[in-house]
Each structure stands twice: as structure tokens, then as C-alpha cells.
Amino acid sequence: MITIKEYVMPKNIDKAYEYLISKKNSMIFGGGAFIRMGSKNIALGIDLSKANLRYINEQDNEIEIGAMATFGDIERSEILKRFSGGILSIAIKDIVGIQLRNIVTLGGTVYSRYGFSDLITALLALDAKVKLYKGGVRTLEEFLENGSKSKDILEKVIISKTDGFSVFKSMRNSKGDYAILNLAISKVDGKYRIAIGARPQRAIISSQAMDFLNKNQINDKAIEKASNILASETVFGSNPRGSSKYRHEISKVLFKRAIEEVMANEN
């Protein structure tokens, strides 16, 4: 159970940041759904609902998703359904239920760098960037690794508009559960990019497997080899949803199924 002493809804991000640094125990609220599960004492809750950050915009070279875009917005966005095999809509649609997805926001998830996230893995495969109010534009990959040194606000996620195709795969037992493991592959200009998440630690790039794919002719043997590289380069952990051993095994399966789908799309 959380407690909040004061709750404000600033009209813009500048004001939000002012609030954020005004108190020690201040906290930014996206959808607020996951904060609910914790047990924090928050002096000042800063809600971005009224800060005009709920948008999905298509520019010439980029797609921008505002921090307050809900998973529901992303799932239903015609722009995103058209983009790169619709990977973002697909990655999101298995998360619990529509009533939760209509609350949970992009910003809340990405800024928190949740390990269980499906969306982050998909965004990572797309080599997305994050725009932080103070920290400026950073790659998601680097942001996931280092986080934010000081208190900041995620303003939006930026995705380069490329002519690629991407696939997202996750392993769940009950479909209402969070993923035991997830994996996304994008292929842009002949180059593969692989992200793996819910290990259960936060998503990372599988660089060795990627390198191997990008340097070799893709055939069954190469896929088999790449799957082994991926499984051995990735650090897996155990939690109540699965052991590291099981995650290790199914990482190869998710990888093979994803790459087969990418290739099937090309044919």
C-alpha cells in the first residue's frame, strides 16, 4: 500500500519538473497502475495526465510516442499497426486485459525500466530513443543500462521510420500472466537486431547472436548456431515464473520462431 501526501497535475512538463525537484520524495505518475503494487511513502505525486504528453505522431523520419500514451493507444494506433510488422501493437496485446492497458502508459513503463515488460523488448529491437526532459535524447539501450543519474521525466520515445520488419515472441503459461521470457527481432536494411527481456532482468541486446546473423548466410544451420550463441551470451535468472535453465532452453525456441517469421515475411 502506498501513501501520497500531495498530488498535483501540472499543465506542462516544465512545471512538472519544477515539482519533481522541489521535494525529496516526489514521484512522477504515468498510469500509476504498477506503483499501486508497491509500498512507498510519496510526499508529492506528479501526474502528467494534463501535460499534453498523450500522443502518437508520425513525422517524416520518425514516430514519436508521448510518455502518456497508454498501451491501449499504442495497441489501437493505425500508425503503429502499419509500422514494422505492427510489432508494438502485437507486443502489447497479451498484457493482462484491455482495461489495464487503457491505464498503463509508455512513460511509466519505460522510465521504470521494468524487467517483465514486453513493450521495452520490442522498442529495444527497434533501436528506439528516449527523450528525457533534462537528459535529452538517449538510446533506449543505453538508458536501460544506466538509467537516469538524477531525477528526470521521460517526455517521449522516438522510433526511426525505417522500412523494416520486426517480430515479437513471448512465452507465457497462462495467457493472463506476465512473460516468462520475451524476444524481439527487427530487420532493417538487411541488418538484424535482437532484444531479449523478462530474463527476468530487464531487456538487453543479444549482440553476439546479432553479429553472427549479420555476418553469415542465413540457413537452418546458421539459425541453429545463432540460437546457441544467443542462449549462451544471455544471463538468465530464476523467479517464481521460471528457472534460468528453462529460460535458457526456450530462448532458443523463441529466437528460431522469430527468425523464421522474419524470413517467411521476406518470401
Partner: peptide
């Protein structure tokens, strides 16, 4: 489940202030 501006949402994880 309720509807907020016509969208189905869970009222148990939605801070009341957000409904303003």
C-alpha cells in the same frame, strides 16, 4: 471495470485525482 471517457478502465488502480 468502469468507463472513463468511454474507455474501459480498472477503477482499482486508477488514482481518483486522475478522473478530474
Amino acid at each position: 471495470t468502469i468507463h472513463l471517457d468511454g474507455e474501459a478502465v480498472l477503477s482499482c488502480v486508477l488514482i481518483s485525482a486522475k478522473a478530474d
